[in-house]
Design a protein around this nucleic acid. Structure first.
Length: 774
DNA sequence: CGCGAAGCTTTTCGA
DNA sequence: AAGCTTCGCG
């Protein structure tokens, strides 16, 4: 039992407590993954059949990795029958084999958010509902939250309170829309993400024999990231574990960041109420980060009301202080980060993989990509518009979905006239109306075109176009029976005209679309080969489609490449990096303007900040910009309140503290570089110095009103007289250099080209550059 | 019916 | 800025 060596006391306890309910509160960096893997290994070495173990993880990648680590301890043969994966993938598989109970085909389609939105829009159109009043996205969110809380259509209709609430919100047709949407999905033989959980609940409650079967199979259940489970997931776990009660949940309430998709922090906060006999183990020693980082994170998270008492600590070195950089713009911020990474890469011999750039929103990515590319720094962006969400990929995938499940009308309508083949909107609408009136699927109408044609009022041209399209699909289906999936997909891409259509577009975007399709084909081939090698692999098309529907970007993280990682904070959960750049620390961005109105929302944003901070092992850089190009225009920004929540003792400012706190916002274009929200307002140290008389609580950044004139923006800045071409100057950040060029006559706006020894040439606006003559 | 231009809206996080 | 919808013409 070598694997038990080196565990600390609580870790040991968590690993060796095999029976009964157990809650492991694992602080950030406390060796949670290790405990989980060792615990499973320990179960197996103690004679528990791996077949009886179910482990639910947050990403499929985490599952894969943990399985590998377990295999190292107990041997591959033993680890194989272990069931490990995300809620969605595990229960999608179970639903496939039990689909007949629910009246679904076993090859049901899985709709992603976009697909489901498309279906919803069609429903709204069908019902003649004004999409201005019923914004599809809002409706979708509402339905999603019903599903996550197990409010089925029937439950909704029997609940006057809900109906009333929707009426008050001027959404009295929600119930009707909900009903239609569910009907449509059912008819399409499709489940959305929420259905995968909701239908599992339905399966387990309506069919006790099924529940008994899975209860008996999954005698030991482990749930990772329990703080981010929603009610639906909670009920599944509860139902499955209620017979043996060998349930181990692992989580950290301080890292609950998914309430927007229904995660319920009370699942973990109330675990003890659900299982009064539950044992609790707290892992409090952080092995990941320096003391400075851990302490800073603790101070911030302590502001949240709702939480377990924990004392996370680190025995590592004290470490560097967190460095804070104030940038002039988003581009400036990105340059700072890129420079910093470049310097550290050279000076400290850090690999690029050691760095992560974490941000709140995906739209922040671009500036960093530009800056990194300019410096030739290799990077990889995770998340964002994921590969499988690209239009060209979705189009090809829609064809494939249609082959597997021809009732999937969403897929059918997506491809019936793409590439265009003369089956326009009018024709499509006639088809839809007719199919509805006969209560059959679109596929059924196309199957029996000969019989239905007289009732459809199509001319011969349209009929033959429809027949051609459908016989093409049928031919693909026949091919699928004998040929390998890759071959069929290739045939689809070519015969449908998709490839040709894409190739006709020779713009850079068009070329990249063709490449993307190629990449999809490659990944398909890879998938098939991999599945063929696995003993229990499934190289079928529907298996491939399920795989991509549930794949996360993290899942395909490429190893062995020395690249800087760019991702949202949400995606970074569970990862760690030696150096973390947490960027865009501005009010309305982080915390997000969408989540700043209630205490609960703000606390979740704060937990997000905590997650970001605790990703770092050695060093953290905070940065924010005072102006940012956003939504098509330049917007002023104010430092995030979270900056002021970190005690000054853990922080070091890279920019000099600026004398003036004020700037004139009226008139001058240079206002965007204003220092009006510089540190003195927000940090105790500076405040004590500059505002000795002020005992008032710090104002929220929102309320700040800039006053005074632009003249005193930067007393330490340079006027035109000070600096001349040929002068040797020092810059706080770029070091020593020589002025090679001056440009402009307006003293407010003189630009200086300075050649720095280490940094090369920079174009600076003299007024702000704070150059010192030497 | 198909295409492109014009106009309009909408901005978080993601299985 | 980007995505989506609408509109008008060939």
């Amino acid at each position: 039992m070598d694997y038990l060596k080196g565990l600390n006391e609580p870790q040991y306890e968590a690993v060796t407590t095999l029976h009964g309910p157990l809650m492991v509160l694992a602080g950030a960096g406390s060796g949670k993954t290790r405990v989980l893997t060792m615990r499973i290994a320990h179960l197996i070495t103690n004679g528990i059949d791996p077949f009886n173990i179910l482990a639910l993880t947050f990403t499929n990648k985490a599952a894969k990795e943990m399985k590998l680590r377990i295999a190292k301890v107990v041997g591959e043969g033993n680890a194989k029958s272990l069931w490990m994966g995300t809620f969605h993938s595990v229960f999608a598989r179970i639903l496939r084999s039990e689909a007949h109970y629910l009246g679904f085909p076993s090859n049901f389609t899985i709709y992603d958010t976009q697909d489901s939105l498309n279906v919803l829009k069609k429903v709204l159109k069908d019902l003649n509902i004004d999409q201005e009043l019923y914004k599809p996205k809002k409706v979708q969110a509402r339905i999603s939250s019903y599903k996550n809380n197990l409010i089925t259509v029937r439950a909704y209709q029997n609940n006057p309170e809900l109906i009333e609430a929707d009426e008050r919100a001027n959404m009295k047709y929600i119930g009707k829309i909900y009903e239609k949407y569910v009907e449509q999905c059912f008819r399409n033989g499709a489940m959305d993400f929420d259905d995968l959980l909701l239908r599992t609940n339905e399966l387990l409650t309506r069919f006790p024999e099924v529940l008994a079967r899975y209860q008996d199979r999954f005698r030991y259940i482990l749930v990772d990231e329990y703080q981010d489970t929603n009610h639906s997931q909670y009920l599944i776990v509860k139902a499955l574990s209620s017979k043996f009660e060998n349930i181990c949940v692992v989580g950290d309430d301080a890292q609950s960041i998914y309430s927007f998709r229904g995660a319920n922090i009370y699942n973990i906060l109330n675990f003890k109420k659900d299982y009064p006999d539950a044992k609790t183990v707290s892992l409090e020693q952080n092995y990941r980060s320096t003391q400075n980082i851990v302490n800073a994170a603790n101070v911030v998270i302590a502001r949240n009301k709702e939480q377990f008492k924990k004392n996370v600590f680190s025995d590592n070195e004290v470490g560097d202080k967190i460095k804070v950089f104030r940038a002039l713009s988003d581009a400036d911020e990105a340059n700072f980060v890129a420079n910093n990474i470049w310097e550290q890469h050279n000076a400290n011999q850090r690999k690029f993989t050691d760095f992560a750039i974490l941000y709140r929103t995906n739209s922040q990515t671009r500036a960093f990509e530009d800056a990194l590319r300019r410096k030739n720094i290799p990077y990889r962006v995770y998340g964002g518009l994921s590969f499988y969400q690209r239009k060209e990929i979705k189009d090809l995938v829609a064809y494939l979905r249609l082959l597997v499940n021809e009732n999937d009308s969403e897929a059918l309508l997506r491809v019936i006239n793409y590439p265009t083949r003369g089956i326009g909107e009018t024709t499509q609408n006639k088809l839809i109306v007719f199919a509805d009136s006969q209560n059959v699927s679109l596929a059924n109408v196309l199957d029996n075109l000969g019989i239905y044609a007289p009732h459809l009022g199509f001319n011969n041209g349209v009929i033959s176009k429809l027949a051609d399209f459908w016989s093409m699909i049928k031919a693909f289906q026949v091919m699928l029976k004998t040929e390998n999936v890759y071959t069929v997909a290739m045939e689809v891409a070519q015969r449908s005209g998709l490839i040709k259509f894409l190739k006709d577009d020779q713009t850079p975007e068009g070329i990249s679309r063709v490449e993307n399709v190629q990449e999809l084909m490659n990944s398909m081939q890879g998938f098939i080969e991999e599945q063929q090698q696995l003993e229990d692999g499934d190289p079928s098309l529907s298996s491939f489609l399920e795989n991509i529907a549930l794949s996360t970007d993290q899942d395909k993280k490429s190893e062995n490449e020395d690249q800087v990682s760019l991702m949202t904070i949400h995606l970074s959960k569970g990862l760690e990096f030696p150096v973390v750049h947490l960027v865009g620390l501005e009010e309305n961005l982080f915390p997000s303007f969408m989540s700043s109105s209630t205490r609960e929302e703000l606390e979740e944003e704060r937990r997000l900040f905590y997650v970001a901070l605790t990703r770092a092992e050695k060093q953290v850089f905070f940065s924010y910009a005072v102006s940012r190009f956003q939504w098509g225009k330049i917007t002023d920004a104010e430092p995030s309140r979270f900056l002021s929540e970190v005690d000054e003792e853990y922080i070091e400012f890279l920019n000099p503290v600026v004398e003036s706190r004020f700037v004139n916002k009226s008139g001058l274009s240079s206002d965007i570089f204003g220092d009006n929200f510089s540190e003195p307002r927000f940090f105790k140290k500076a405040e004590k110095k500059k505002l000795p008389s002020s005992d008032e609580p710090k104002p929220l950044p929102k309320n700040l009103k800039p006053v005074a004139s632009a003249k005193i923006i930067n007393p330490s800045g340079n006027s035109s007289q000070d600096i001349e071409v040929g002068d040797r100057v020092r810059h706080d950040r770029f070091g020593v250099g020589e002025v090679v060029f001056l440009d402009g006559t307006d003293p407010e706006n003189i630009k200086a080209k300075v050649k720095f020894v280490t940094e090369g040439e920079k174009n600076l606006i003299l007024k702000f550059a704070k150059l010192t003559k030497i």
